[in-house]
Design a protein around this nucleic acid. Structure first.
Lengths: 204, 204
DNA sequence: ATAAAAATCGACACTGTGTAGACTTTTCGC
DNA sequence: GCGAAAAGTCTACACAGTGTCGATTTTTAT
């Protein structure tokens, strides 16, 4: 059982197993879109990846582990992206940029993000992963609010508390909108941006 | 199979089955709290209700049907409650009252409400139930916003769109807070109220 | 070329679901 | 209070999917 997904990453020549592992994750993602988590069986994933169930269990210990790995792969991508984003000083610009980036994220990875949210409760590992991701967002929102003049602190009218609520608002709104259409996602984004701006005191 | 949960409600004498049905739902609720949906088995529920699996299937066709009935029972309660609530004219009061009621709702029924949200995706019946509940909330919020002077309409800065986002904000914030403690729930409520007030233009 | 490591397979044991038919208890009109 | 119909209950079974094991084949590196 390969412990870390990319533990073999530094190798020059790629092992056969690395290819398979990727194939498994890719198949899992496709099936998740097709039939959803519950209906998707380990046999399905194995078949899609061109191996038998028995062989799949060489790579992952369980169905949950497969999905956890998939979430980890996606979430890693999100972290990279958010690290790479330039920090703007002007709050209005920062908010617009953040929302734009979030739309792109959900357009690209909406399915896996929704799955992560759904399974956060039942798969502790995924819960951790998503919690960490949410924390990054909350921190970023908090910083912007503070820079916009909202007092720092955790009381209901202070930056940290407001940032939390805004983060959940964005998560849930995008969760639903991304299930429908890109248009809805864009519209939802504008609404969230508007509420964020108002909460920051940047518009009346 | 008893079609509607309360179809036998007008009877004077209560059938044995009515008692059992309630026992099943009560046990289900207790087990949901103890072990969660996935870990909870039909056998567990039957045992808790003092019957065998076979007998339980006389009442409900599946595990999902049991939980759906439980959600229906709870949600019916919510609807009653929201119908019974007096409508205030003054927006500030209306908002405070609504948030207070919501806190009570989540304190009393948080577990089932969280379950409903979690299963909305996988159990279409529950999805419908919850969607309808959310719609009631969105409508109520929309009315308050409009009365506070926010322009009616579905554009990002108009009442309906804002109400949607606020509804999701409240749902998600309460979902998380109700898992932790009553104190957190109360605090979360105050934060949401603050954002609602700001969005309504009632405070700066 | 070869031995160790990596990968694969098929068979098995187990758990939980839902169904079927026989059996028992309750209800209610008389 | 009697007896048939309705309501409720049970045990046994068939079936799906999960995860494990040991034997076997393929790949990799020397």
């Amino acid at each position: 059982m390969p412990g870390q997904p990319s533990a073999r990453g530094r190798r020059t020549t790629e092992r056969k197993g690395d290819v398979r592992e990727r194939a498994i994750l890719d198949t899992c993602e496709a099936l998740l879109a097709q039939k959803g988590y519950d209906a998707m069986t380990v046999g399905d994933v194995a078949q899609g990846a061109g191996i038998t169930r028995g062989a799949l269990y060489f790579y992952f210990g369980s169905k949950q582990e497969v999905v956890t790995a998939l979430v980890a792969r996606t979430v890693e991508h999100l972290w990279e992206r958010s690290r790479a984003t330039a920090q703007t000083d002007e709050p209005r610009q920062a908010i617009a940029a953040a929302m734009q980036r979030t739309v792109e994220l959900w357009n690209e990875h909406g399915l896996v993000m929704r799955t992560a949210i759904d399974l956060s409760l039942t798969v502790p590992e995924i819960g951790e992963l998503w919690k960490h991701t949410a924390d990054l967002f909350v921190e970023a929102i908090t910083r912007v609010l503070e820079r916009a003049g909202i007092q720092a602190g955790t009381r209901p009218d202070q930056a940290s508390a407001i940032a939390h609520a805004l983060c959940w608002m964005i998560e849930r709104t995008f969760y639903h909108a991304s299930q429908e259409s890109r248009e809805n996602l864009q519209k939802a984004s504008e609404t969230c941006e508007h509420i964020w701006l108002i909460s920051a005191g940047l518009i009346t």
